[in-house]
Design a protein around this nucleic acid. Structure first.
Length: 263
DNA sequence: AAGAACACCAACCGCGGGTTA
DNA sequence: GTAACCCGCGGTTGGTGTTCT
């Protein structure tokens, strides 16, 4: 319970910003419940976190949205829905994207949707078709602590890939990534087994013989796993380096090209 | 010139999910 | 197993500036 009667609310002062910035620079991000005390701020932890993430954090892109950014926001929104955390991958804060969406783009999207109301309703979306990719925390998984590379739970091939690679067939890095995005875009193959894991069509993988994938792992700076090379520190699928151009091309090919023209 | 309406955005709040004891 | 705690997402509010009438 925040001490709502005691903590300060409302706009932040320059002095508060300086205190918060110094605190985060000294102790790092996280442990927000300790930040008000450490920084000497009479603010609740949520307020401190929000101020840092949306305003003080370095490298925040501010100002007007470019045409490319708007295009990407619209496409990602169509792909992922109201999940500003993913929309914020374009380099804006989640709050910035959310505000812009709520005050600007949503109206345009609503009005454009009215134009197509005469069309038949799409098939109803059930709970089982909702895709909710979320970052995962695996720090309690023993084999991860031991340094075994693995792929994130939220993966097109399902829970089998949570297992250590020694029990899995190898996949090409780019292939895995693009298949995940394609699985998001292809509702025919998506099943959800629980709130957080995405299952794609695994029939082809099932036919692959299980191979040992740790045969040539002596490379400095990383590790060869089958035909994949993992950089040092790269432990999960979400750590794959991503080619923005590939993602952009994929979105371009799958989503409605006329969306922007309607705006 | 002044009040109303609108737009923008910083900030607040509730709640769900993950972690810890 | 579970209760308490913590984090952070997403909806909403409220203040301020701008435009309209």
């Amino acid at each position: 319970m925040e001490r709502s009667l005691r903590v300060k609310k409302g706009a932040w002062t320059e002095e508060e910003d300086i205190l918060l910035r110094k605190c985060v620079e000294k102790y790092g991000e996280g442990r927000w419940h300790q930040v008000p005390l450490r920084a000497g701020l009479n603010r609740c932890r949520k307020s401190c976190r929000m101020r840092w993430l949306n305003y003080l954090k370095p490298n925040i892109k501010r100002g007007g949205f470019s045409v490319d950014e708007l295009d990407l926001i619209i496409r990602l929104h169509k792909l992922l829905g109201n999940r500003q955390v993913y929309l914020s991958t374009i380099g804006r804060t989640a709050n910035d994207v959310k505000n812009y969406w709520n005050t600007n783009l949503r109206k345009k999207m609503d009005s454009s949707n009215k134009d197509v109301k005469s069309k038949p309703e799409p098939k109803s979306i059930t709970k089982a078709t909702i895709i909710k990719p979320r970052p995962r925390n695996f720090k309690n998984i023993s084999w991860l602590r031991e340094g075994t590379p693995f792929i994130n739970v939220c993966h097109p091939f399902g829970d089998d890939l949570c297992k250590p690679y020694s029990t899995m067939a190898p996949f090409d890095n780019n292939e895995v990534e693009s298949m995940w995005w394609e699985s998001l875009l292809d509702d025919k193959e998506i099943n959800i087994t629980n709130n957080n894991s995405c299952l794609g069509n695994v029939s082809e993988i099932d036919q692959e013989p299980i191979k040992s994938v740790f045969g040539d792992s002596n490379s400095p700076g990383g590790e060869n796993v089958g035909n994949m090379f993992y950089e040092q520190g790269q432990r999960c699928w979400s750590d794959f380096s991503s080619d923005d151009a590939d993602l952009w091309n994929l979105i371009n090919t799958e989503l409605d090209q006329q969306l922007l023209e309607q705006l």
